[in-house]
């Protein structure tokens, strides 16, 4: 099936200056990690019970129904980049409470201890199939993946670095939208990332956005929708307004597939829906095509 999606012939896959084509790499072994929820997990969609080991083997998808379990930002990096190549950047950036918004600090502290992350986005550089890329991942578990100034700054730096180093940026989105506790300042992170993306756009640097569950609100209405190529994970919710808000507006029940990745594919909003097991190869193919030598340099 993957062959249909991303057909390629090895002999044409030129990797920048590398003379020898690299052997096809297997997805990196998922590092053994503590699975905090115990040994067995239940699939939210079909009720299938899965051993932690089995779940890992299936890259956190259900082998019965293909439901995609939520994965945190670090796991996402492990699933995507060549093993051991990731270097985190700007790890010291965290949120402050510029508006003195009530209970913001305690919510931040709770999110930090729950996720082990300092902020809602993880950014860095690494390699995919031996090709250098910048990678950013929004963590859906950190205050619902909301974007405040710290997330905005980290993503903006990743975009700026992509311009300077002329490397593709792969951004996994997952967000309830702009972070309410930073009010107008969080809304302006949409503007901030957009001016940075505009520079990437003008300098011809590849930006791939990968939509994971859920991507809505201000994130959906800015960089998530601005990828040169937009990939979505199966079943991922992707839309401007949340489902409940739309239901209230319409005063009617919405179809089950409303705002899913598949719905978005049907309506022309994403380029492809790619199963997590094939995501790495799909991204590698995209990067390979964008780093191949042009026709002017043809032999």
């Amino acid at each position: 099936m993957l062959k249909d999606l991303f057909y390629r012939r090895r002999q044409y896959a030129t990797l920048g200056t590398a003379a020898e084509p690299k052997p096809v790499q297997k997805p990196p072994e998922v590092v053994e990690r503590d699975v905090p929820k115990g040994l067995v997990q239940k699939c939210e969609a079909c009720g299938n019970l899965l051993m932690a080991k089995e779940l890992q083997k299936h890259v956190y998808t259900c082998p019965e129904c293909n439901f995609h379990f939520r994965v945190d930002a670090r796991t996402r990096v492990e699933l995507t980049l060549d093993a051991g190549t990731f270097i985190e950047l700007d790890a010291g950036i965290t949120s402050t409470n510029p508006l003195g918004f009530p209970e913001y600090e305690s919510k931040l502290a709770k999110a930090q201890s729950a996720t082990g992350m300092a902020e809602g986005a993880l950014t860095g550089k690494g390699e995919i199939d031996g090709m250098p890329v910048l990678m950013a991942v929004m963590d859906p578990g950190f205050m619902m993946g909301s974007m405040g100034a710290a997330v905005g700054e980290k993503l903006t730096r990743a975009m700026e670095r992509a311009c300077v180093e002329r490397k593709p940026l792969i951004l996994f989105t997952a967000s309830g939208g702009a972070r309410m506790q930073e009010a107008i300042l969080s809304l302006m992170q949409m503007a901030k990332t957009s001016v940075a993306l505009r520079r990437m756009h003008d300098s011809g640097v590849l930006f791939v956005s990968v939509i994971t569950h859920p991507t809505t609100g201000g994130v959906s209405a800015s960089f998530a929708s601005l990828g040169d190529i937009i990939i979505a994970e199966p079943g991922a919710m992707f839309g401007f307004a949340g489902r409940r808000v739309v239901e209230q507006t319409m005063r009617q029940k919405l179809p089950d597939d409303f705002q899913t990745a598949e719905f978005n594919l049907k309506h022309g909003m994403v380029d492809k829906v790619v199963h997590r097991k094939q995501m790495r190869d799909a991204l590698a193919a995209i990067v390979r095509i964008h780093t191949a030598r042009g026709w002017a340099d043809a032999d």
Partner: peptide, 18 residues
């Protein structure tokens, strides 16, 4: 925030303006 707006790409319409 209506269904038709979602179907026709409210998100990408705003994003492209930005």
């Amino acid at each position: 925030a209506g269904m038709s707006a979602e179907e026709r790409g409210q998100s990408v319409a705003i994003a492209e303006n930005l």
